[in-house]
Design a protein around this nucleic acid. Structure first.
Length: 419
DNA sequence: TCTGGGGTCCTAGGACCC
DNA sequence: TCTGGGGTCCTAGGACCC
């Protein structure tokens, strides 16, 4: 058996921990630049606000129903995610962290326990220790566990835990599960399935193996098997090393100036280098991309990207920012308004497994010492105390009007409340 | 006026090897 | 006249996830 523990409306729930008066009120959390809704409370969902709805299109609903708005506060959510994981780890020997708000628990060998009670207890404990409501679905496969956890959200009677294992129960649930709600069935395959009359998970399960493999490949077949109760998606108890690290942003307004864009992209490169060093990694190449505003149909459109290989793997801010600047200078076209840009580090290797370069060992060592000195200073005296000059003195152009304090991680932001 | 930011895996086809 | 039969690696594009 596997459990899926999923935090309900995670970002909204984090905000509510410090604003309990928002319980029962519609709340949404916005993407960067306060662009669109990326998390919604149940009340906000009931008002018809959809995932990804742009704020300007739902302003009416927001005003009319007094919807509480928050800009996203990722450091707050990351900290809550860490707390929730700590609770989960006390319930299972192995967990697989799937995303910021979800993790699988490996319950193999624990089938003799009362798993329904265990799920409910875990949910209750998480709420009590962290303030975050949690849905725990337990089933013979990961795909079924996902469906079971979704049930908890619709049926409060389950008290946050649903153990779904009897074949007749599974069938009953699958008959009511819309095909698009199944993990692994996305927006491309949904219409194709509906066109042949497959509207529920149950219908999907009744298709033949041959049909599935022919039209949906090995991944479709895995989903099909999982719905039949045959575990076919590996439980990954060891976090796989990252294959890429990406830093990209949409800007608050279009950038028409080459130097300004160079500075912004240098900031992304610098952020990427810091992440690499933080995780003791090196990258072998850096992809730089830039794009115009795809919603502006009246403006000329452009999307370009270039891959810059490094002679030896690196995590030096100087190497990465230089690659970024040179590439932007090359790709930039006068007259285009750039709305989005970013960098992606790939060919990632752990520092410990990467041999020292044979020819420029000296400069390699110099960079490493310089970077660790900069990291130390920034850690002690504050982030961005020392930056690479090519970043300029700017920050990423962004807009967040409704951001809450970093209650749990930055002390001077916590408001003092007099009682 | 205003539209997020990350990731992963699979497949087919081409280049290349012996 | 007759023109093999295996492999691997890389890449781009597509699909999916939160």
């Amino acid at each position: 058996m596997f459990a899926l523990a999923d935090c309900n409306n995670f970002f909204v729930s984090c905000e509510r921990v410090f604003r309990p008066e928002l319980e029962g009120r519609p709340v949404i959390v916005l993407s960067r630049n306060d662009g669109c809704a990326i998390a919604r409370s149940n009340e906000a969902k009931a008002l018809g606000i959809k995932m990804g709805d742009p704020l300007f299109k739902i302003q009416d609903i927001v005003r009319r129903h007094n919807v509480a708005l928050f800009s996203s506060n990722m450091s707050l959510y990351a900290d809550f995610s860490r707390r929730v994981r700590a609770v989960l780890r006390s319930y299972a020997p192995q967990i697989e962290v799937y995303s910021i708000d979800e993790a699988f628990l490996d319950l193999r060998g624990m089938e003799n326990l009362d798993l329904d009670a265990l799920g409910k207890e875990l949910s209750h404990k998480c709420r009590r220790l962290t303030g975050i409501p949690l849905s725990v679905g337990i089933a013979p496969t990961k795909t079924l566990a996902k469906i079971a956890s979704k049930l908890c959200k619709h049926y409060p009677k389950l008290r946050g835990g649903c153990f779904m294992h009897r074949p007749e129960d599974i069938e009953k649930v699958l008959r009511k599960t819309p095909i698009e709600d199944v993990w692994g069935i996305g927006r491309r395959t949904t219409p194709r399935l509906k066109a042949i009359g497959v509207t529920t998970a149950f219908d999907f399960r009744n298709l033949s193996q041959e049909w599935i493999y022919k039209h949906m490949g090995i991944t479709g077949l895995r989903t099909w098997r999982e719905l039949h109760g045959i575990a076919s998606i590996e439980f990954e108890h060891i976090a796989q090393p990252k294959q890429s690290i990406c830093n990209s942003r949409s800007f608050a307004t279009e950038i028409y100036d080459c130097k300004e864009l160079m500075e912004q992209v240098a900031i992304f490169a610098s952020m990427t280098a810091e992440k690499l060093r933080d995780e003791q990694l090196l990258c072998g190449e850096l992809t730089i991309f830039m794009a115009t505003n795809r919603f502006r149909h009246d403006e000329p459109q452009q999307y370009t990207n270039t891959v810059v290989p490094f002679a030896t793997p690196t995590n030096s801010s100087l190497h990465l920012t230089r690659a970024a600047r040179e590439t932007v200078a090359e790709l930039f076209t006068e007259g285009y308004g750039y709305k989005r840009a970013g960098v992606i580090a790939t060919q990632i290797t752990p520092m410990s497994a990467t041999p020292m370069p044979m020819f420029d060992a000296e400069s390699y060592g110099q960079h490493a010492r310089l970077m660790s000195a900069i990291d130390n200073i920034n850690r002690t005296l504050g982030h961005n105390t020392i930056v690479v000059a090519s970043q300029g003195m700017n920050r990423v152009k962004s807009h967040s009007e409704y951001r809450s304090p970093r209650y749990t991680t930055v002390w001077d932001e916590i408001p003092i409340v007099k009682i």
